[in-house]
Amino acid sequence: MNGDVTALVEAAMVRLYVETTAKVEYYNGTAMVNSTKAFTVASACSGFFISESGHIASAGHCVEPALVRNDIIAAFLAENVKDNMITEATAKEIMASDLSAWKIHGNIESDPPSQKVSAYQPKGIKGAVITDGPIVVPILGFRTHANGDTVLLKAEVSNATALAFATETPKKQTEVLAVGWPSSVDRVSDPVHQHASFESGDVSNDSGRSQAGVPQIQISAPVSKGMSGGPTVERATGNVIGVNSFFPVGENQPFNFVTGTDFTRQWFQSLGVPLVAARVAPAPDVPQDTQKTGSVPVWLWALIIAVAAMVVAAGVGLVVLRTRRARALVPVGQHAGSFTEPAAGMPGTVHGLMCGACGAGNQTGRFCNNCGAGMTQPTPN
């Protein structure tokens, strides 16, 4: 892995915690009523700086209220179980029933649920700019999962290490790194010190579209829960090809999707984000003894020229060398695949041999007139 790319991406990574608070409009058996209490659920996602002035990119579904609706309802039912208003079995039955009429909202029905997004960078990250604990980052723009799955947040920081977007969609088999914080790792480590995980893979499909027609890219790199919103970057440059978005339910193999490169970059540009310029892949190392002749060292070119000069001066020597090598493959006294061909009208008379080296016929001497390979003596039929 390119250490420079790893350090760059790690310095740009941001952990996000999203708190959604809402009241529940529910059916009490006779009518729809509102809960008197608001309920809060929290979720974790990954994000990354895309400008030096603190703009953060992540996945839209991380802050999409509709996707936490069931979690809010579950929290409401759990509170009723705790207060002995309903049994746990009843709560499970309700969750399994049709809840399409149930709604969540803010303090009043016309308000959306309230959200607070906090961002921080783990300790020990060189180049980190959020170093004094979590800070609240407001939402400046948002697209639902179905419409592009991106969100723009803003941290009040300066000189952030920002990742650039690739200038075009990567080709199939381009090596990539999916980056983020798997929630499963948090269960066995200290999140405050946990650095982002880098998962290797490549681009499996560069021309995919969702059922709604939104561009998306399929990758083979593993992406776990909690890595949503993190970047998938080109391994060679660190340029972002898309935001970690989703994986098909029930799929056990690395089969994940990120947002489309151009589609994502253009959306952030439309919001006025001062994106940084894309990085160029470093040129491969060239040995000191290699010049414009390509990957062939100068000393090898000198040897080739010397051999060519010897061939011009003594062309027969090269033919003899070839002949010896060819003859060494055939035991003494055996024909190298040659045969006799009687002359027409003269059965049993030797007309000549076919050369076993080049296939030329009608050879009657000790050496082939065409290639110079040695011939065995003609033998009558």
Score class of each variant (00 low, 15 high):
residue 302 A to T: 09
residue 374 G to S: 11
residue 111 D to T: 04
residue 7 A to E: 15
residue 330 V to T: 13
residue 103 K to W: 10
residue 126 K to L: 10
residue 332 V to M: 06
residue 248 P to Y: 00
residue 302 A to W: 01
residue 320 V to M: 13
residue 299 W to M: 10
residue 48 F to C: 06
residue 132 D to I: 02
residue 12 A to G: 02
residue 320 V to L: 13
residue 12 A to S: 08
residue 186 D to T: 08
residue 105 H to V: 09
residue 220 S to P: 14
residue 8 L to G: 01
residue 136 V to G: 11
residue 24 V to P: 15
residue 209 R to H: 06
residue 263 F to Y: 15
residue 91 A to R: 13
residue 9 V to T: 12
residue 322 R to W: 10
residue 27 Y to M: 13
residue 307 V to E: 09
residue 47 G to F: 08
residue 14 V to I: 14
residue 311 V to Y: 03
residue 179 V to I: 15
residue 185 V to Q: 05
residue 56 I to W: 06
residue 368 C to T: 07
residue 283 A to M: 07
residue 89 A to Y: 05
residue 292 K to V: 09
residue 105 H to W: 07
residue 197 S to F: 04
residue 234 E to L: 14
residue 286 V to F: 00
residue 195 H to A: 06
residue 35 S to V: 10
residue 367 F to I: 10
residue 7 A to S: 14
residue 57 A to R: 00
residue 103 K to I: 07
residue 1 M to S: 11
residue 252 N to W: 01
residue 255 F to N: 07
residue 64 E to N: 05
residue 81 V to K: 03
residue 230 G to M: 13
residue 354 M to P: 10
residue 37 K to A: 04
residue 95 M to D: 13
residue 87 T to E: 07
residue 5 V to K: 10
residue 305 I to F: 05
residue 372 G to E: 06
residue 184 S to A: 14
residue 62 C to Y: 02
residue 329 L to G: 10
residue 239 N to W: 00
